[in-house]
């Protein structure tokens, strides 16, 4: 441990880049989450599956409920404007946005790693993005 002089300790540029994007995206995601959920539960927009139907089946295993209700799943709600502009689909999109935040942060950070000559971490960041994107395609669970 060292005595603190006057200057702040160095925080690497890539870390500041990650933090900057994370800050903006997390605020946006939380606002979108709140807004879309309000539209969902107060029925400001039409719903693909009604809340009452979800509540009547939420004690079932996920595949069973899916079989009965055909609720939004993966990217299914993006198939058209009609299926997208619904309360449950927008609320689902909010969850997707939260899951995509690390991907965007890493995509912004990877070039900074390369510029700062930290090649190994640039590659790790890109590999991480690849893993998250593969998971997001859903091919692993089909």
């Amino acid at each position: 441990m060292k005595e603190e002089p006057s200057a702040k300790p160095l925080v690497h540029k890539e870390q500041l880049a990650y933090a900057g994007v994370l800050d903006k995206l997390s605020h946006f995601a939380m606002l979108f989450l709140a807004g879309s959920y309000a539209a969902y539960i107060f029925e400001l927009l039409p719903q693909k599956v009604s809340i009452a139907e979800i509540a009547a089946n939420w004690h079932l295993r996920a595949p069973l409920m899916q079989e009965k209700l055909d609720a939004p799943l993966g990217w299914s709600f993006m198939s058209g404007m009609e299926s997208f502009w619904r309360g449950d689909a927008l609320s689902y999109l909010a969850i997707i946005i939260i899951c995509m935040i690390p991907v965007i942060c890493l995509l912004v950070t990877a070039p900074v790693f390369f510029r700062e000559k930290r090649l190994v971490f640039g590659i790790i960041a890109l590999l991480q993005v690849l893993i998250l994107l593969v998971a997001a395609t859903g091919i692993l669970v089909r």
């Binding site: 996920a62 899951c99 995509m100 998250l132």
Partner: peptide
Amino acid sequence: AAAAWVYMFKGAMLPL
């Protein structure tokens, strides 16, 4: 974030 996608594609993510 990685694991959440599996839950989403398996229908185990309910916004409600």
